[in-house]
């Protein structure tokens, strides 16, 4: 009789040299730990009043960001929401740049001009984080249209929450992408809550993205968003389809956010025990087990943990020491000439 461990191993692959392989698995693990540690640090820095404004954490949802970023090629484009720290970090943007922006320092990704909800790093393919729900789905379509028109092979990936599926732009973008057969992947992170309200209370179908796919002639894809291997393989299939000219995909990743909607939200609306049950399925816990099942030595895993903690500590110190943005950037980059002149 097969043990639980055997079954897990069989479901995850057939050993170190399976389709994912050791190097990719270590990368997926490290990405998740970077996100976890950086966001946990962001939360701690709130409490010290060093992170200003609002912030929307992805604690518990790391596998989605890691799995997709792991399947991307250089040149692929990410379009994120205000809950975009995870996807930004997953593309390789430094923790210091992200924390610096959250702390609104001059060393931040956008030197404090954008803030937590608008993380952007064009050089890493992070083409913006958008704080108006749904806005970036059509924008991702446009980037994909450019790839189609130019014959480029890059794919645009658009991440959003379950709540986004109830706004008009979602439906406009899905139809548009399907009709134009655009190389774009729509990734719904269904974390069960639109903000404070359970998504099921405000949505006509049980699966806010998956159950809408048929409306746009797309396949219904609903996957375990807490298992980075599952996400990675799902992402790869969608990338292959997009690059081959097969058009868009809509993927619903089932996951759960461990924190509230934003820094203002203690998430008291959760039913008793729900958070604890999901923490049993913590993506990092799942993935650590996975690595062990594949025979990766504990010290290799611990070294990653230790190294990431050091990176986050160093970034924190660098941000604390960084100056606030100089006043002279207040009026730069309103227009393409670098300035803000609206009259002569």
């Amino acid at each position: 009789m097969a043990t639980a461990k055997d079954r897990a191993q069989a479901s995850a692959g057939s050993g170190l040299n399976d389709d994912i392989g050791e190097a990719k698995r270590l990368e997926l693990y490290r990405t998740q730990v970077v996100i976890r540690e950086a966001e946990q640090r962001a939360f701690d820095l709130f409490l010290q009043n060093l992170v200003k404004g609002t912030s929307h954490l992805s604690l518990g949802q790391e596998a989605v960001a890691a799995g997709f970023a792991g399947a991307m090629k250089p040149g692929d484009l990410s379009f994120c929401t205000y809950r975009g720290h995870a996807h930004t970090l997953a593309r390789g943007v430094s923790v210091e740049k992200v924390l610096g922006e959250l702390m609104q320092r001059d060393n931040g990704l956008m030197r404090g001009k954008g803030g937590s909800m608008h993380l952007t790093s064009a050089e890493h393919g992070v083409m913006g984080s958008y704080a108006i729900i749904g806005a970036h789905l059509p924008i991702a379509c446009g980037a994909a249209w450019r790839a189609q028109y130019k014959g480029a092979k890059d794919v645009s990936v658009c991440f959003f929450g379950d709540g986004t599926t109830n706004i008009g732009a979602f439906h406009e973008a899905l139809n548009f992408a399907a009709v134009w057969k655009l190389p774009v992947i729509f990734v719904c992170e269904n974390n069960l809550y639109m903000e404070y309200t359970p998504i099921g209370d405000v949505t006509a179908v049980p699966h806010p993205a998956g159950d809408r796919a048929a409306s746009y002639g797309l396949e219904r894809v609903i996957v375990d968003g807490n298992d980075a291997d599952v996400v990675y393989r799902t992402a790869q299939a969608a990338f292959d389809k997009a690059r081959a000219g097969g058009g868009p995909s809509l993927i619903e990743c089932l996951t759960y956010r461990h924190s509230g909607h934003s820094r203002a939200d203690p998430a008291k609306y959760r039913p008793e025990g729900e958070l604890e049950r999901w923490k049993e399925r913590d993506p990092i816990k799942i993935y650590k087990e996975r690595l062990k099942q594949f025979g990766i030595a504990e010290n290799v895993i611990n070294d990653i943990d230790t190294d990431v903690k050091r990176v986050v500590d160093d970034a924190t110190e660098a941000c604390k020491a960084a100056p606030v943005p100089p006043v002279d950037i207040l009026t730069t980059d309103v227009y393409a000439d670098g300035g803000w002149a609206w009259r002569n």
């Binding site: 083409m127 059509p138 924008i139 446009g142 980037a143 645009s156 406009e172 548009f176 134009w180």
Partner: peptide, 28 residues
């Protein structure tokens, strides 16, 4: 048909698509 394209009645999609294309190198 590649350069002059009919869209659905989806003004947000039109505007968003124009923006995404503009951000990445076209002049829509």
């Amino acid at each position: 048909p590649l350069r002059v394209r009919d869209t659905p009645i989806s003004e947000q999609a039109i505007m968003g698509a124009a923006m995404g294309a503009a951000m990445t190198g076209l002049k829509p």
